[in-house]
Amino acid sequence: MDKVHVAPCIQDDIHGFAQSYSPAVYSLVFILAVVGNVLVLCVVRRYRSSQSGGVCAFSLTDTFLLHLAISDLLLALTLPLFAVQWADQWVFGLAVCKISGALFSLNRYSGILFLACISFDRYLAIVHAVNSGLKRNTCHAQIACALIWVMCLGLSGVDITFKQVEKVGSFSQQQRPMCVTWFTEKSLQWQVGMQLVNIVLGFILPLLVMLYCYIQIFRSLCNATRRQKRKSLRLIISLVSVFVLCWAPYNCFQLADSLQKLGVVSGGCQFVRTVDVGTLITESVGLSHCALNPLLYGFVGVKFRRELAKMCKDLLGRRGLGIEEWGQRKRRKTTVSLSSAESENTYYSVMV
């Protein structure tokens, strides 16, 4: 999506590679991400409808995971547009270009910030379990989510400003309209500055928060015997680990690009070509993250699998049951869910 343009360097091989690589990868990630995150939203909605007490009765973990799924789904909806661009050219206009670029940045920021919030919530629940009751309020979690969305929208404003539809091509290829982040020579400082801000605020600082939380959690659980906390921790650590593995390579190439533009690193056209190809590949790996979270819920989250199985049984059971019989069955299940939720207090999460 972002383009590094160095005039003296011929980039025919990069454009050819992108045309064959990006459409297939983006299309596959789009299908998996939409199906997976829609299932997550349906499962959370089903569980939420069985609970009483309104928004503030919802689990803190599920609140953040719900917003994470929405963020991933928004990103996935932009991928077909960029798949069409790499296969042919950008045909959707300037407004869609700016909105799509903003959604990309929005997901990058919000994704790791929601994961950082989940980590901090687990830190309060496990390390400070005795005196964190007032702090771990789900209404406060909703406010935190709203603040994260507002802050990330502000950070993605750079894409709205600098995303342009420009004709891009190499010496031997016909130039095509592309949706790119277009910086002039006068705005080069903006480009380098925003790349560094993306790396620091969108990756390093939240990662440090998560590492601190989990180090303290592991120390607290050394002699713990509560299996439920260990199971929930396994899912959250899996989410964080996959996020780091997906986005760390992309941030490394972004850092290399910034250092090259600042003159700290010099490598000529070969270095620029390597950074361009590396950015293209690692960006697609980062984008695949929005399709991997639902798979983690399914493979690691025992309760999520249970709720998903119940939802599928309900959908299949509606065909063979009369309206009255199905209604009695649903009420019976709701009663069981409520009693289960009450027995496990506010710690119960449909995801783990």
Rank of each mutant, 00 (worst) to 15 (best):
H289A: 09
K330A: 12
A87T: 01
K135A: 14
M351K: 02
N223Q: 12
F58M: 13
P80E: 04
I215C: 10
G322V: 09
L211S: 05
L79Y: 09
A116H: 04
L296I: 14
S349H: 01
S220V: 03
G317D: 11
F162T: 05
E283N: 13
P80I: 03
M210L: 03
S50I: 00
V34Y: 03
T346P: 14
C222K: 15
Q216N: 08
R219I: 04
Q254M: 13
Q85S: 07
L287F: 13
R227K: 12
D2E: 14
V350T: 13
S71D: 03
G101M: 10
V165W: 02
L259T: 06
A309R: 13
V4P: 00
L65C: 15
L287P: 00
Y212H: 12
I160K: 02
F30I: 04
D72F: 11
C152M: 06
I281W: 02
L94T: 15
M151V: 15
P23E: 05
L41V: 05
H5E: 13
D276S: 15
V130H: 12
G202H: 01
L28W: 10
V34T: 07
C252K: 00
V244L: 09
C312Y: 09
V25R: 00
L255A: 13
A83Q: 04
D12W: 04
C269A: 04
K167E: 14
S100E: 03
Q11W: 06
V44N: 05
L255M: 11
W90E: 04
T63S: 12
V264P: 03
R329Q: 14
A76C: 05
W149G: 06
Q260C: 09
F114T: 03
T63D: 01
T274Q: 04
D12K: 03
S349R: 03
S349A: 13
G169F: 02
D2Q: 11
W190Y: 11
I148H: 01
P206N: 08
E166Y: 02
S284N: 14
C152S: 11
L259Q: 03
V197D: 00
G154F: 05
A116T: 07
G133L: 05
L77H: 02
H15N: 08
K310D: 09
G317V: 03
W90G: 05
H15Q: 08
G154P: 01
H67Q: 11
L196N: 06
T335E: 10
G301D: 07
T184L: 10
I215V: 12
R332I: 03
N293K: 10
L287E: 06
S110M: 11
Y212R: 12
C312D: 01
G193P: 07
Q142Y: 15
L106C: 02
F304T: 03
S110I: 08
N223I: 10
L188S: 13
